[in-house]
Design a protein around this nucleic acid. Structure first.
Lengths: 225, 225
DNA sequence: TTGTGTTAACTTGTATACTAGTTAGACTAG
DNA sequence: CTAGTCTAACTAGTATACAAGTTAACACAA
């Protein structure tokens, strides 16, 4: 292991981030087998940190570990997607409502930057980049409302939700709606319109439901139900 | 390791549950040192499953692991308590509101049983038993609303919140208010009164704030701030 | 007495060895 | 050819060995 990698965190964390990223971005497919030994050889580390990363990913329902049999990347489970969506909608409605009372200068600047970059992404960005900006947009809301720990925990239960969002961005290049909704949520906060912000956030987090059926048809192998 | 223990789950899980229970019930105090080797000897297992349990507990902010230095049980952090309280209030208000539309027979039976046992607890129960019934009461709400996964994730971020609740039950034997609120929430659901249920749940989950200051004074060593 | 260097005993992180259990395929008996 | 058995190669779970770093106590010199 190079010192460079370890400087950014432990080996365990490096393995965890690497695998999680691959799963969310569909480089490793739902249902695909994956083994501790195989990964440890690919990344040139021992089984221990790989195993620890696996346990964390299993905790997030991204891996299913069957003792003495093997480990597979979990197929997308719509009930998990729906629960994650429900939690995010409920919490983020409360957050944007609260943010209408007062926000900091830093927040405004970061949001303006983020929304601008999203608009640029429509022209010449990748879906992966837009996904990251989307993620950051929501993170900024939690941060400004002093709910960073909440964000981290919710992120943990978002694995299946995130994979669906990622797939949606990749398969449908019409990103205008999403970017516009982000812009609108931000504008509602600036106008101190809690009802508007809440409503927009609600419909924003309902989007994932709209294409559920078509995705399910086209990629049925990757879904549990 | 006896087969009996393993039958109820892996060694890792056994260690995890044992330590978590001790932390929540103040058998291991905030700020106290704890080491992988020590625990592995006490429970007669190797360091590996103990370490894995430690990692999970650190993930829940119940342990703070300092590499090459040691591990301590984290002191109670009010900002974490508040975030956990916020999430639970927001989510559970939404859940009880929704449950006012329709509930199953099983749910009614289980809730009646639970509330009755809570009432008995006031007379001759232990605070630990009441804590468990309290926990089960809220779990039943999530279960009936098909949010079991949500419950499991929220439970993960409730370590600091739970310790405070446990301390409160132990130091103030006046449990009437809590038990009555539980009863009232259930009755509101049965009366199909969403506004009432939501309001009662709101004030119920605000209770922990009320004695914050006095607990902080009497047990200042155990708090981070 | 004070300050400094050394060492020994700890800590967690990582690597490896061993255990127990599953599975798929080859091989053999009928 | 078929059915059944056995084996070899895999899996994850657990135990142990080693690495790297911290700390505190102790010895010793100024």
């Amino acid at each position: 292991m190079s010192t460079v990698i370890r400087a950014n965190g432990s080996t365990r964390n490096y393995v965890y981030k690497t695998i999680r990223d691959k799963i969310i971005n569909w480089e490793i497919k739902p249902g695909q087998k994956i083994s501790e030994k195989e990964v440890s050889e690919e990344l040139s580390v021992s089984r221990t940190p790989v195993r620890e990363a696996f346990l964390q990913l299993a905790q997030e329902d991204l891996l299913e570990i069957y003792p003495q049999i093997g480990t597979v990347v979990s197929k997308i489970d719509f009930s998990l997607v729906e629960e994650a969506r429900f939690v995010r909608e409920t919490i983020e409605r409360a957050i944007v409502r609260d943010l209408c009372e007062n926000v900091s200068e830093d927040f405004i600047f970061e949001m303006e930057t983020n929304v601008t970059m999203q608009a640029l992404c429509i022209e010449k960005g990748t879906h992966k980049r837009l996904f990251e900006l989307d993620q950051q947009f929501h993170y900024l809301l939690y941060k400004e409302n002093k709910k960073i720990r909440t964000w981290m925990f919710i992120r943990q239960m978002n694995g299946h939700f995130d994979r669906l969002r990622s797939l949606r961005l990749a398969s449908d290049p019409n990103w205008n709606l999403i970017v516009n909704q982000h812009k609108e949520i931000f504008e509602n906060i600036m106008k101190k319109d809690p009802a508007g912000a809440e409503a927009t956030m609600g419909s924003h987090l309902l989007l994932v439901n709209s294409e559920k059926e078509s995705l399910k048809e086209n990629y049925s192998n990757y879904f549990k139900n």
